[in-house]
């Protein structure tokens, strides 16, 4: 059983890496985003594979975060924001009016730039998702989910004796790992990370990056990052955004060693950004 599952996961990853994109997990076609009159994202089309890390890079205000927030429809919370085009997850259109946004977000987790644990205990933070989505049937069940999520987030050993303490009392890095644990507690299919390390120190950043590397075996992870080094370290594929357009997308090594577009070249060599 052990080997079988591991092998399966590895197999999928390898297959994806090898074959490029046979069955994309998330697929976007001609996505445009408008804030009122302003067009923030222009005709973005991209396919994102399952079980792997995709990173979005680009200068500030290039639309990478905006695009990320389209994938779990967080843009719905901004009244003036309008999205056109088509985004699918497993071939299901997520902007289908019949689709329930609450259920969508249970399938697409998100980790934010600034750690934002709820002002509750560590336990409650992690148990929140399973509870509202009815994932557990008993207290023991919930305890198990909380423990395994915290374990997966590499936080269990540090917090197991103080699960009832407030989540806001931890260090920044711990808080962010708590947010990741919170996100994976409902076993989403996709995890969106919006510059998850920008508020952290280098050591905490290294831990999160390790964690991301671990999680990619089970999840489809999309990460927005400011740091090209981070993109190079954690992701298998990279997309470069500039002024609201997707300039170039491909395997990370290729983008960083042999970019096709001049703008990508300029950015990664540090001529702007």
């Amino acid at each position: 059983m052990h080997t079988l599952v591991d092998k399966h996961a590895d197999a999928v990853v390898h297959a994806n890496l090898a074959a490029g994109l046979s069955t994309p997990k998330v697929s976007a076609k001609d996505v445009n985003v408008y804030y009122g009159e302003k067009r923030a994202l222009m005709d973005v089309s991209v396919d994102i594979p399952d079980r792997g890390v995709m990173s979005f890079i680009g200068p500030s205000g290039c639309g990478k975060s905006t695009f990320l927030r389209c994938i779990n429809r967080m843009n719905d919370t901004i009244p003036i924001c309008r999205v056109t085009g088509k985004i699918t997850i497993d071939n299901q259109d997520i902007y289908d009016p019949k689709l329930d946004v609450v259920q969508l977000r249970a399938r697409v987790g998100m980790v934010f730039q600034k750690p934002n644990p709820f002002p509750k205990s560590i336990y409650e933070n992690v148990a929140y998702g399973p509870r509202i989505h009815g994932l557990s049937h008993s207290k023991a069940d919930l305890d198990e989910i909380v423990q395994s999520s915290l374990e997966k987030a590499g936080l269990w050993k540090e917090v197991k004796d103080r699960l009832n303490e407030s989540g806001t009392g931890m260090s920044g890095g711990q808080q962010q790992r708590l947010c990741i644990a919170r996100a994976i507690a409902v076993n989403p299919e996709v995890i969106l990370m919006d510059e998850p390390c920008s508020a952290l120190d280098p050591i905490a950043t290294a831990r999160i990056e390790e964690l991301i590397d671990e999680l990619r075996k089970n999840f489809c992870i999309i990460i927005v990052t400011h740091s090209m080094q981070q993109a190079a370290r954690v992701s298998q594929r990279t997309a470069f955004f500039h002024l609201g357009t997707l300039v170039e997308e491909g395997p990370t090594t290729e983008i960083f060693t042999n970019p096709k577009d001049k703008r990508t070249q300029d950015y990664i060599t540090g001529r702007f950004g």
Binding site: M110, F112, F118, P119, G129, I132, H133, C179, V186
Partner: peptide, 27 residues
Amino acid sequence: VPQSLRDGAYAMGATKSETIKQVVLPA
């Protein structure tokens, strides 16, 4: 109450009232 807390709850798939009752009001 910072918007990031609300975003955190929405991103978990909470409805608006769940967000308010369990995140915004406690905060």
